[in-house]
Amino acid sequence: MTSPLPVPVGKQNAPRQSPPGLPRRVFITGASSGLGQAFARHYAAAGWQLGLAARRADRLDELARELGGALAATYPLDVTDSAALASAAADFCARFGAPHVVIANAGISVGTLTEESEDLVAFRRVLEVNVFGMAATFAPFLPAMKALRDGLPRRVVGIASVAGIRGLPGAEAYCASKAAAIAYLESLRLELAPSGIRAVTICPGYVDTPMTAVNPYPMPFLLPAAEAARRMARAIDAGTGYTVVPWQMGVVAKLLRLLPNAVYDRLFGRAKRKPRGLPL
């Protein structure tokens, strides 16, 4: 599925002189709200040059204005549109240089039931955004990142989820997409290792964002988006191959993975479900 949005041309807020030393650069998808917005604020505060991509141009412009002193370019696009991402990558690299970090954060979630034929549209959309969109985000940047010779660490970061570790009822599409993302990122980690670029898999637990605001069930260890971004940025900087944030959800996920199917089914078979509908 391609986006109805036009291939973007980056828009820059008032340019400021880069700070002394080698500027670091990050490109973030899903930057207009939630965790992506929190990442943008975190890296802007550290003086990084930013590429901010999302579907909502007005939100991106508002964020760029808020960041003020940061050097930022905004790209209104849909991550399922690989041509738009290629255009954004070319513009960003021409303007600032290849990014040191690319964060494929864009993702959508909605309840789906396989028995409901109308949910197949939502199922396809979730998989396209959460899996294909991640690969489409990395692809146009990798050649330029491989050519970087400034000695600074290089990372490609995929935001997966603990929902990819075990399936949940009524979340077939979302769980499948995040399980696929985890496997894809593991393959990418091995593929990129000889180049020195580290692929980082981050599996958030519950983060307080618009995506989780509709969840009709308790969310243990819920983190504010700013705190989640801070912890994740620390893992990104360290080049950690795989991490769960917060760590408590990692313990829970490992325990759930060890449960026999009969026990797991009994515990979660009647769990409350995310509302169905078309994903935003």
Rank of each mutant, 00 (worst) to 15 (best):
M1H: 13
T2E: 11
P4F: 05
L5W: 10
L5C: 03
P8I: 08
Q17D: 14
P19G: 10
R25V: 07
I28K: 04
L35M: 12
G36T: 05
Q37Y: 07
A38E: 05
A40K: 01
R41P: 08
H42T: 06
Y43K: 07
A45L: 05
A46Q: 15
A46T: 10
Q49V: 02
A54D: 12
R56A: 02
A57H: 10
D61G: 15
E66D: 14
E66M: 06
L67M: 07
G68Y: 04
A70T: 06
V79S: 13
V79Q: 12
T80M: 15
A84E: 04
A86F: 05
S87F: 12
A88D: 13
A88G: 14
A90V: 10
A94W: 10
F96G: 01
F96K: 02
G97F: 02
G97A: 07
G97Y: 05
A98M: 03
P99S: 09
P99H: 02
P99A: 12
H100P: 06
V101W: 07
N105K: 02
G107F: 09
I108W: 11
V110G: 04
V110N: 12
L113C: 09
T114D: 08
E116T: 10
D119W: 01
L120Q: 11
R124E: 14
L127A: 06
L127D: 05
E128Y: 09
E128R: 08
V131H: 03
F132Q: 14
M134Q: 13
A136V: 07
A136S: 14
A136L: 06
P140W: 09
P140Q: 05
P143M: 10
R149Y: 03
L152E: 13
R154D: 11
V156F: 01
V156P: 11
G158T: 05
G158W: 08
I159F: 03
S161W: 11
A163W: 04
I165S: 01
R166L: 04
L168T: 11
L168P: 02
P169V: 09
P169A: 07
A173T: 06
Y174R: 02
K178I: 02
A183L: 06
L185D: 02
L185K: 01
L188S: 10
L192W: 03
P194A: 06
S195Q: 10
I197P: 13
R198K: 15
T201I: 14
I202L: 14
C203F: 02
C203L: 15
V207P: 00
V207Q: 00
V207I: 14
M211R: 02
T212Q: 12
A213I: 08
Y217G: 12
Y217Q: 13
Y217A: 15
M219P: 03
M219S: 10
M219R: 11
P220C: 06
R231Y: 11
M232Q: 14
A233N: 01
G241E: 15
G241I: 07
Y242H: 14
T243N: 09
V244Y: 08
V244L: 03
G250I: 00
V252G: 03
A253S: 14
L256K: 05
L256V: 08
L258P: 01
L259P: 04
P260V: 00
N261E: 14
D265M: 10
L267D: 01
L267E: 04
R273N: 09
P275N: 09
L278V: 09
L280R: 15
